[in-house]
Amino acid sequence: MCGRFTLTRDANAIARAFQATVPASFQNSARFNIAPTQNIVTVMQNGERHLDMLRWGLVPSWAKDLSIGSRMINARAETLAEKPSFKRLLGHKRCLIVADGFYEWKKEAKTKTPMYITLKDQDIFAFAGLWDAWKNPDGEIIRTCTIITTDANEFMNPIHNRMPAILTAEERDIWLDPTIHEAGPLLSLLKPYASDEMAAHPVSRQVNNPAYDSPELIATVQ
């Protein structure tokens, strides 16, 4: 699964990386411990490609209340085309979720060691995501999203048996293409990322506390 990640770059750097525009009202700050139910940076394409903020934790349009979102932070690639919550979104409501690292907990004896995973070149990357819009009882529209996960690659497997579906630049273009609605070509993108392009190191257990958000979290600990 993917339950915490980071995004420390500013909006202009993100926009350049994804060839996206930055809306005048868009604001973001460096984040070192992004947690479910928080607003996160995404790339959307409806007309033009642009940065946007969505709430992490999918709330389907038919949901009775917002609380379901905390249980739908991830979606398994293998069942996207089967589960009603995701099937209709796969064809029409896809997004990129922007990150520059993510955390996973490695089981070691009776403890779990938090690991910080990045690309070797420290570049910005994107998880494949789905989004939906939900109207609360007051009539407010809340847009939410989920991160798609897939099997772990050889590098990730000793840490965890799942990993977020990270897309290459070419795959991102396909994922955001509004003319593609068939499940086949989209599901084929959701595969384990190249092992030889990834790096990881152990970090402080303070990452377990979502209230703690500091550069110290990504520092290597022994």
Rank of each mutant, 00 (worst) to 15 (best):
R172C: 15
M163A: 04
Q38N: 04
T8L: 07
A133L: 02
K135R: 15
T149D: 14
A211C: 05
D196A: 08
S188C: 06
E170F: 02
V43T: 01
T168R: 01
S214G: 01
L7W: 10
N12I: 11
V221F: 08
K107C: 06
C95V: 12
A75V: 07
R172I: 01
P137I: 01
D121S: 12
H50G: 07
K110I: 10
K107P: 00
N39T: 00
A128R: 00
W131F: 14
Y103T: 06
N209T: 05
W134L: 04
D52A: 15
L189Y: 02
T8M: 07
I14R: 12
T21R: 14
D100V: 06
P178F: 02
A17K: 09
T144D: 06
Y193W: 06
N46K: 05
G91I: 04
R71C: 07
R205P: 06
E154R: 15
I68W: 10
A20V: 02
D65Q: 09
P84K: 13
K112M: 08
N46D: 14
K191Y: 01
G69T: 08
D100F: 11
N161T: 10
D196L: 09
I40P: 00
R76S: 13
E154Q: 15
F86R: 12
F32W: 10
E182F: 02
A75F: 10
I40V: 12
A200N: 09
A81C: 08
M72P: 12
R71D: 14
V43L: 02
M1W: 02
A35S: 14
A133I: 06
R4W: 05
R4S: 11
I159S: 03
H92E: 11
K120P: 04
I73T: 11
I68T: 12
M198P: 04
S70P: 10
L176D: 01
G184F: 03
R162T: 05
T42E: 04
V221P: 04
D10S: 05
H50E: 04
P215G: 14
H181G: 01
S29H: 10
M163N: 02
E104T: 11
T146W: 04
R162W: 01
A194Y: 03
L217F: 07
N157P: 00
D177F: 07
T150F: 04
L186Q: 02
G91V: 03
T150V: 05
K110V: 11
L54R: 05
D213T: 06
H160F: 07
E216M: 09
E154T: 14
T21G: 15
T113I: 11
L217W: 07
K110H: 14
V22A: 13
L90A: 13
S67A: 13
D151W: 08
I142W: 01
I34G: 03
P215M: 10
T8R: 15
Y193M: 12
T42L: 05
Q45W: 01
N136Y: 03
R31H: 03
L189S: 07
